[in-house]
Design a binder for these strands. Structure first.
Lengths: 146, 146
DNA sequence: GCTGGCGTTGACGCCCACGGCAAGGTCTAC
DNA sequence: GTAGACCTTGCCGTGGGCGTCAACGCCAGC
């Protein structure tokens, strides 16, 4: 099949397939007129790439899976190199999630504090500020020059 | 103070400060010779930007905080617009964390399955494959959650 | 005067996975 | 013979937050 059909069947674009080939990820045979020629095996490789891409894997990270399939293994993750990528991605995801969770909690704390201070400033007196603002400053809103 | 000193005191670079100015985030006065001139208030604004940047806020998301300080408020998050940014970022972080967590679990499941299949293939006979790869289609045994 | 350390603007590079467009070649159908 | 659907290569654009020159101006010290 040619590039357009492969793209349609894999739910992607010809531009993407040409990009993969330029990266050496999905090489194509050529017909006499220079057109790229693909087969069902290429469709399998491509689907493997797309699955991993959907998971957020980088293109280079999909390479071991593709090479594993090209080597004739039953699945893209039948090879040790693919498992290593799985493990590395898992560790990376754990690290990212932990970091984002920490940021999330910090932002939540800042929001709670700021909301509390706003509520303390508006209705009652300026009393609660004695602990929250260490040194005296200009109290409420000044006339803004804009 | 001039741009180099401000950059040093804020732990950033002159390139960054010029970039902020080009974005209209941290405008600078100019001395007679064209040099940028900053004061302590600019340092406060810059520190506010840096804190939020470290949290992963985009530059545009820091703008309400900077404007809040410029308007004379005691803190960058003393204004409703800043609180809105906090809330939006919180929701965004929750969504991202949930998505990454789901991907993480999926990758963990794929890894466990692939490791199991590899262990089943290596030591014993090729028996277990009769169920895992019955026909040459892509049969990675995905959990099919939906 | 000359060196060196500051400052200025402008422009390009980077990363990543493509999208979009231009200018052309190729094949099929009518 | 011609429309139009496909294909080719090549190059620029995208977004975010800067890094890294390049080429020049300003100023202090010796």
């Amino acid at each position: 099949m040619r590039i357009g059909e492969l793209a349609r069947r894999a739910g992607t674009t010809t531009r993407t397939l040409r990009y993969y080939e330029s990266r050496g990820l999905l090489p194509a045979r050529r017909t006499g007129n220079g057109y790229r020629e693909y087969d069902e095996e290429d469709l399998r490789l491509l689907r493997q790439i797309r699955i991993l891409q959907d998971f957020g894997f980088g293109l280079e990270e999909t390479r071991p899976f593709v090479e594993c399939l090209q080597a004739g293994h039953p699945a893209g993750d039948s090879c040790p190199a693919s498992l290593d990528v799985y493990r590395a991605k898992l560790a990376e995801l754990d690290a990212v999630v932990a970091r984002l969770q920490a940021v999330r909690d910090e932002v939540a704390a800042q929001l709670a504090r700021a909301e509390f201070e706003a509520a303390a400033d508006l209705p009652g007196g300026p009393e609660p500020r004695c602990e929250l603002a260490p040194h005296p400053g200009p109290r409420p809103g000044r006339p803004d020059p804009t």
